[in-house]
Nucleic acid binder design. Structure first.
Lengths: 329, 329
DNA sequence: TCCGTCTATGCAAACGTTTGCATAGATGGC
DNA sequence: GCCATCTATGCAAACGTTTGCATAGACGGA
């Protein structure tokens, strides 16, 4: 049986308002200690749980934040969810998850379900929700490599990160540095692609793309195998992300190619998995903790002050040099 | 500015009830097609979004399901979240995530926030929420290796899975099969531990535990290294899960031990990562798709019929034999 | 012409909270 | 002893939906 503040009120012998004030913690110094205690005890005894729908109806807040992600398969994504949930919970918010990547239907988004949205690499969906909620827009923070100019943004400077990585490969003596990329991300405008182009060009080296149909390991593996068969072996590969780097590694090993002696390998993202390979993978590590922390901060500020000026932060990734890119000279 | 059904009603020139009937899809054959169209167009134009709090207040439903997990770090967990979100979304539910593992405070659980809870390996939290919501209990489905007798349950028979794995190691010629386990799970009552004990005993082999402080890779790695130094090398290791298997693998490699020639290795869970090692890891694969599908089914039936008889399913895992446990004879 | 039936719509209550305003009683200064 | 102030509480409206019941009009049969 549902128990409401009305029942508690009746049971204690006070009015519902008083109960509400005690339970919601609003009327802090307005309620006598004695009444307070009696209400609390009654609530405890009856097993009272506030109805959050009713509460949100009048307060206009739900204490829930949505996290939108384009995909959700790898340890990298698990880590994001983990960090978000932890951070938000501490601030008193719950976390709603939504994968928006491959949904064809427009993102229906009930008003009064969430107080705000954090989008991880899903610019398209964020943009359309913005359009829908034009008047009195939903607070939104965009995270990841691509960004919208009209919402708060937390990103990571993958241009610099990639440039460092490619430069590092060149310094290790690589003269034929390839870029392993999925078909969608291979175009100019992608920070990694642009950085690769620039550094390779400055060094006077040839550009070489290994194009995988998607970001999965198996596809990356197949792409590398096919590429090597057709064009021969590069001596260094920068991979669009760590998943693809793992696929590349396995593809090369199956071909009998030694890493890093014959091919040096650098990934991108910084997932834990890559440390535990036979040959630990070098990578461009994204500062996820910091990014999640900032995203939550930005969102909370935006929820508190809808008209505050635009906030943004672009963090520096860190090149983690491990064995896979260290040539013994 | 917020737009409500009242405004739409005013704009179209009908009553709020009519608008509600059109928009909620309830009064299907009650509304004239003409009115219907006009309401829909007005809603579209004004950018109407229903207030779900208000709706849930009167319907008593939120169309939201909570997924509780004890932790959320690895690709295994990401996969669970992914499958759940996909399945639930298709049935019209949204997914709320909560990590309940290490939270000290009791699981506060607002009534009217979610319609049901799916708990993945978090018996303790489920039990306490059951106690709190004793009268008119929240629909709950428990998933994973441990189970409550008084709630719907979807599990996997890790006893059989483990038995097969250990038997397999013995058949490969291992005579000193160790069990790599984290401190918490090493006790009798855990299906894997019990199965290991039984099979090893029947085979007349000695029991040997490698105890790691937790389930992380690094801890597993350290545990293996320490164990080998103190007690020498077993010739087969069954690992409590894949993460620990990855740690064990790396630990052994750092010691210069060859897998599977000197030590055969089998993990448990079936995460994708382990296929991409230098030596792909054998594992006991949990049928996650099926488990998630069933859990959602059970939950929906329970939500529809609170007094339906208890539902449960225990699925069989599958032993995936890969290179890490194949001795060349 | 009247009555019964059906269709399309409106009215108003209900859902469980929060909160601005009112007020009864207590307290204290003069 | 009176007025001003303060403390603790109650009243009632409001939040945005849904929905049972009522009803107005149309229609058809007798």
């Amino acid at each position: 049986m549902k128990v409401t503040i009305k029942q508690i009120a009746e049971c204690v012998g006070v009015s519902p308002s008083t109960v509400s004030r005690v339970l919601s913690g609003r009327g802090e110094r307005l309620i006598s200690e004695q009444t307070r205690q009696r209400v609390l005890r009654a609530a405890e005894e009856l097993g009272y749980q506030p109805h959050l729908g009713a509460r949100s109806l009048v307060t206009g807040r739900t204490c829930t934040v949505a996290l939108w992600m384009s995909q959700l398969f790898t340890a990298f994504h698990a880590r994001i969810v983990h960090l978000m949930e932890t951070t938000l919970w501490r601030s008193g918010y719950e976390l709603l998850i939504r994968q928006v990547g491959h949904q064809t239907e427009p993102p229906r988004h009930g008003r009064g379900r969430v107080d705000g949205i954090i989008g991880f690499e899903c610019v398209g969906a964020l943009r359309s929700v913005r359009k829908i909620s034009h008047r009195r827009p939903v607070p939104v923070v965009s995270m990841g490599a691509y960004y919208l100019t009209d919402v708060d943004y937390v990103g990571v400077d993958l241009y610099t990160g990639t440039a460092q990585a490619v430069q590092h490969l060149i310094e290790q003596g690589c003269r034929r540095v390839a870029y392993l990329v999925n078909a969608e991300s291979r175009h100019p405008g992608d920070a990694r692609r642009d950085a690769y182009d620039a550094v390779v060009e400055v060094a006077g080296l040839p550009k070489e793309y290994i194009v995988s149909v998607d970001q999965s390991r198996s596809a990356a593996m197949a792409a590398v195998a096919a590429h090597v068969e057709q064009f021969g072996l590069p001596d260094g590969i920068f991979c669009h992300n760590d998943e693809m780097a793992l696929g590349a590694y396995r593809g090369l090993r199956l071909l009998g190619v030694r890493v890093p002696e014959e091919v040096a390998l650098v990934g991108c993202d910084g997932i834990e998995d890559t440390e535990y390979l036979e040959v630990p993978l070098s990578t461009v590590r994204q500062p996820l903790e910091e990014m999640c922390r900032l995203a939550c901060e930005f969102l909370q500020r935006r929820m508190a002050q809808p008209d505050a000026p635009l906030q943004s932060a672009v963090l520096l990734p860190q090149l983690m040099v491990r064995e896979s890119s260290l040539r013994r000279r």
